[in-house]
Structures are given as structure tokens and as C-alpha cells.
Amino acid sequence: MTVLADLTFSAVALSAVYFLAASGLSLIYGLMDVLNFAHGLFMTLGAYAAWDLTTHLTSTLSAPLNFAVGVVAAILAGAVVAGLTELWLIRPLYGRPISQILVTIGLDLAAVGLLLGGFGSNSLSMPVPLWLFEATHWGSLNLPNADFVALIAGVVVLVGLEWFLRRTRYGIIIRAGVENRDMVRALGVDVGRAFTLVFVLGGAMAGLAGLLNSVVFSGDLVSPLQGDGLLIFAFIVVVIGGLGSIRGSAVAALLVGVVQDFSNYYLGTHPGMAEIGNLSVVLLLAVVLEWRPRGLFGGTL
């Protein structure tokens, strides 16, 4: 029983990171039809920005404060790079969806290459408060603090995003644009600004996801390829949830996290099945698409 509870908790924490990565992708796709391969880069850059600041500039601060600086740096780095990507690379290619996908692929290749050249392919260790690696004991349960952080971040972002999409004018523009971009334009709304905004938002969430991925699941390590690894699962979450749906992303992230963690735990120890968790996720995708080709929540926000 405790094993089951511990396992569920860590699966949900993993889901939270998947959700952070996937919700931005899903919004970007839903509104702009852009399959953003550079999302993995935004995650990696978030983690590296946090690493750079916390190991160099602010390393003399107290550990919790230093970590908070890292979180802000990750979010800002993701947001800024994503915004510039939209303005400089995506905007000149409006109306050419395939070229937009290709340009994000090229950006990801080039920037990850630069990171590999600059920092090397080895992982770098980031200073984080030791508290994160301790666990909170609840009766017989052992709940890692890092998982709590991921979970809280995921819930805060989900609630904040829902509020933004339902209560603000830009939120309404984005939801309407996901349904019918042209009609929003014909009402006199400049959708281009909403495009930049979803990239900035998506980038911010991706930066946070990259940092949390390092802290929670990689033992405080950052590496140039971490974001691209996470990106594949974020893609799968987005497709299972339904392209363009935030709630779909949330539900699908839970599904993928649980399936992956449980199959890893119960089957992954058998010889030749180290990758069973990843394989089951792909299988899950195939099953969902056969059953509902548009994903679980296809087409609604």
C-alpha cells in the first residue's frame, strides 16, 4: 500500500513537469498550427540560465534565495527566447506551417549544438537547497520534497492558466483563435500579438519545466540534451490530450506520468526491459489515437 502511494505521488510529480512542458506546446499548436520543436530548447535554456546564475552570480546568497533566483531566471530565459523566436523566425513565415516547423527544428539543432560546444556534453551540477533532497514523512509515507515542489508548480500554473484563458481579454482571444483564427481577425483583432504572447507564455512554462526536470528527476544536473528528451514526451502528452486543449494536456500528462512510472516500477527491473516505461507511453499513444484520432479533448480549450 505504501509503495503504491509513494509511486503514485512520484508519478503525479512527473506528470506536473510533463504538463508544464506540454501546455505551452499545445497552446502554440492550437492557436498557430506550429509544431514547436524549439520547445525542448526553451526547457534546456531555462535550466542553463538557472545553473549559470546560481553557480556564478548569486552563489553567495542563502540556498533557498539562490534557488528562487534560479526559478525566476529559468522562467525569464524561456519567455525571452521564445518571444524572440516568434518575432524573428516564426513571424516571417506566417501562412507557411511546414516552414515554421522546419525553422524550429533548425533553431533547436543550432542552439543545442552551441550549448554542446560551449558547455560540453557532460552534465553540470547546480546548487540547490539540500531540503529538496529530503523527504517529508506522513505516517508510513515517504514523500520527497522535490516532488512537492514540482506538484505545486504544476497546480499553480494550471490554475493560473485557466484563470488567464477565461478571465482576460487576451485569454478570450487565444481561446477564440484556437477555434477559428480567421474569424478573430475579421472581428478586428490583431491575432499576431496573441501569437507572440502564447510563445512567451509557453516559453516561460517550458523554462520552469526544464529547471524542475533537472532538480526533481536528474539529481540537480543540467545537460544540453535534456530538453529534447523531455520534448518527445511533451509531444506525446499533447497528442493524447488533443492539440490545443489545456485540460486535455493536464489529463494526458497524468495518464502518461502514471503509465510510465508504474510500468517502470513493476516491469522495468526485468532483464531487457529497462525502457519499458518509455515503450508503454508510445503504446498508450497508439491506442488513444486508434480510439480517438483527435486525442482525448480534441478541439476544445
Binding site: 481561446r175 477564440a176 477559428n180 474569424m183 475579421a186 478586428g188 483583432v189
Partner: peptide, 21 residues
Amino acid sequence: PEDRDVFSALTVGENLRLAEQ
């Protein structure tokens, strides 16, 4: 537009608010 193309996921109020210019 043709076929009363409203935003079906939005409320009536949101549909109108979107059009405010």
C-alpha cells in the same frame, strides 16, 4: 460570416466581448 460562425467554446458574453473594438 456564413453558417453563423460563432465561437462555440466561448460564452455569448465572451463572443460579444471579443468583438469590442
